[in-house]
């Protein structure tokens, strides 16, 4: 393992993240808008006797959204690096492609987890009572999920050479991933075809795992869709697969 290389790749992203206030603000603002505007609005439509108040129900989904956006944004900064040439500086260095991928995935993980923690800190305002162990467990899930989604973002980034493709990624990958992740409505209530797509989405399992921790004793329609073991296995499994695939794709030469 090339720890120096991995460390410095993460340090660079982190430094740039800290410097770019606007990015931090917008990634924090988006989930807040969803939580307090969409969440509050939808609460009026959703019958209160489904078990969990709607604004509480979407909380794990909003954490998932924070992670989804910031992990993918962080990873597709690789496309920037390619376009402005900095990627070449990394690629000619005596560092294995695998370490580069790990470094980039950890960058996304650190940045996303920090943002998820900021959003998580809002839990008292929407009427939750969470114990310290629950909080730690949620943070651990957020970290693992961030890693998996960041690695997925790197796989995506290897297919694009320029930033012009950004809106394609946004509209055809990020938004569908968000809507079909069980964030806004339980997967079990979806039509079969959408249910199937949701099951292929790694984000679904991350959000489901958080639902297990946050709504521990819930059994109604708002309850988790899969077993906790499956959730955790999928998050870890996809992390490994995406890192390996990204490493292989990085290895390709023209």
């Amino acid at each position: 393992m090339e720890f120096n290389a991995i460390y410095v790749i993460v340090a660079r992203e982190f430094k740039k993240f800290i410097r770019e206030r606007s990015r931090l603000i917008s990634t924090i603002a988006r989930p807040l808008l969803w939580l307090f505007i969409v969440g509050a609005g939808m609460s009026r439509l959703v019958s209160p006797n489904t078990g969990v108040p709607y604004i509480q129900f979407i909380f794990p989904g909003i954490l998932g959204m924070t992670i989804l956006f910031s992990s993918i944004f962080s990873s597709i900064s690789i496309i920037w690096d390619k376009e402005f040439g900095f990627m070449k500086e990394i690629l000619v260095a005596p560092v294995s492609r695998f370490s580069i991928v790990i470094g980039k995935a950890l960058s996304g993980t650190v940045i996303s987890t920090i943002q998820a923690i900021i959003i998580l800190a809002l839990f008292p305002f929407i009427g939750f009572k969470l114990g310290i162990f629950q909080i730690i467990e949620v943070i651990l899930i957020c970290t693992a999920l961030s890693f998996s989604i960041s690695a997925f973002g790197i796989v995506l980034a290897t297919f694009y050479e320029s930033y012009e493709s950004f809106s394609v990624i946004m509209n055809f990958i990020i938004m569908p991933m968000f809507f079909l992740s069980g964030a806004m409505y339980p997967v079990k209530l979806l039509p079969d075809i959408l249910k199937l797509i949701s099951k292929l989405n790694p984000l679904t399992y991350g959000i489901d795992a958080m639902k297990h921790v946050i709504f521990k004793f819930e059994t109604g329609p708002m309850s988790p869709d899969f077993s906790y073991i499956i959730d955790v296995a999928v998050i870890i499994g996809t992390s490994i697969i995406f890192v390996i695939v990204a490493g292989k794709l990085f290895e390709r030469k023209k």
Binding site: E2, N4, A5, V8, A11, R12, E89, A93, P94, V95
Partner: peptide, 9 residues
């Protein structure tokens, strides 16, 4: 430059 120094161990 420091980035480079780390990258090249």
């Amino acid at each position: 430059l420091i980035f480079h120094a780390y990258l090249y161990n």
